[in-house]
């Protein structure tokens, strides 16, 4: 185990804090409120087009910090490894975490590794916790959402879920679909720096766009209206969802977020997003329609009817016919 730590983790995540090899990392943090979060990552398969469990474990936690407007600083990384896991697999995952941390501008400063018996794990489980700092005075969250706020999304939806599905289920699609997995903190910082009064942010993960919007509507006690014709979704992704009976609104994303901004700043926010690497396909998809406490999300369909958008319950299962 010590060999593993010395030969694999130290060199990969190389930094002076980790290098001290102490029981806990002691950190200098810049002034401002701190943000602190944790998440565990289990994904099957470990590698999928456009990402792997390692990059997900870094971006996922970084993105959670970003959703309160924090600049991510430090991550911890806990590994639960199943006995018999090939070292090359772990090495590839660790290298991917290193690259992802670099890209997201965070340092992995502490960690832990445990090994469980063969059959008691799924190759690798990773837990990461993250600390970030808030360098602005905005309160970002559902309580700040107001009637009339515009809702923006930073790109095409449902790609991660379909990318994972394509390898997990052994489905052979005649098209290549990469996960949208990406760090979002810099995008959020760009908006805040430009003076956009961001009211609420939420990254779209499991449960997709629908679950994120329903959660916000319920927490804020407001109703949200979106329009199907405004939703960005790649044609091949849409076609695969159609074929399997999935609703793209419910399919997982790993590098997408919704941004609630005051109406008067919506256009400017959209411009800023489109100019950012992580939001070139950004779109305005709807608005907060009423402060009626019903907490519903209503979507205007392509043909002009209205329907409720619901949270995903359980897992989406492919249909019979």
């Amino acid at each position: 185990m010590n060999d593993l730590i010395r030969e694999m983790f130290f060199p990969a995540f190389d930094n002076p804090i980790l290098g001290q090899g102490l029981d806990a990392a002691s950190l200098h943090v810049p002034p401002g409120r701190l943000a602190f979060t944790t998440d565990s990552y289990v994904v099957k398969p470990l590698f999928f087009p456009g990402g792997d469990i390692g990059s997900m474990a870094v971006y996922g936690t970084v993105n959670d910090l970003a959703m309160v407007g924090a600049r991510p600083l430090f991550l911890s990384s806990g590994f639960i490894l199943e006995e018999g896991l090939p070292m090359e697999t772990l090495w590839t995952v660790v290298q991917s975490m290193r690259l992802a941390a670099e890209k997201a501008g965070v340092t992995i400063v502490t960690g832990d590794t445990k090994v469980v018996d063969h059959g008691k794990g799924d190759g690798i489980f990773i837990n990461t916790a993250g600390i970030g700092v808030l360098e602005h005075s905005l309160e970002i969250g559902p309580s700040q959402v107001r009637k009339g706020d515009k809702i923006l999304v930073n790109g095409d939806i449902a790609r991660h879920g379909v990318a994972v599905l394509s390898v997990r289920e052994g489905l052979e699609f005649e098209t290549h679909i990469d996960s949208d997995s990406a760090p979002l903190a810099d995008l959020v910082a760009t908006l805040i720096r430009a003076g956009i009064e961001v009211h609420c942010l939420r990254d779209l993960t499991r449960g997709g766009l629908a679950s994120a919007l329903v959660e916000i509507a319920e927490q804020a006690g407001l109703s949200i209206g979106i329009q199907e014709k405004l939703l960005p979704c790649r044609a091949d992704v849409k076609a695969i969802c159609e074929l399997l009976g999935f609703d793209p609104l419910h399919v997982a994303n790993e590098g997408r977020l919704v941004v609630f901004v005051p109406a008067y700043q919506a256009e400017r926010a959209l411009e800023l997003m489109k100019a950012h690497e992580q939001a070139q396909g950004a779109a305005l998809i709807g608005e907060v329609t009423a402060a009626d406490c019903r907490g519903q999300v209503i979507m205007r369909s392509l043909i002009g009817g209205n329907r409720i958008v619901d949270m995903l319950s359980g897992e989406q299962l492919p249909r019979i016919c």
Binding site: S301, G305, I320
Partner: peptide, 24 residues
């Protein structure tokens, strides 16, 4: 019908009933 709100486009005289064709 429910997903696209097709029933909302119909005049009130036309009522849609939903049949047994759900294998599950």
């Amino acid at each position: 019908i429910m997903k696209y709100g097709i029933d909302q486009l119909l005049p009130s005289q036309v009522v849609l009933l939903h049949g047994p064709g759900c294998p599950v």
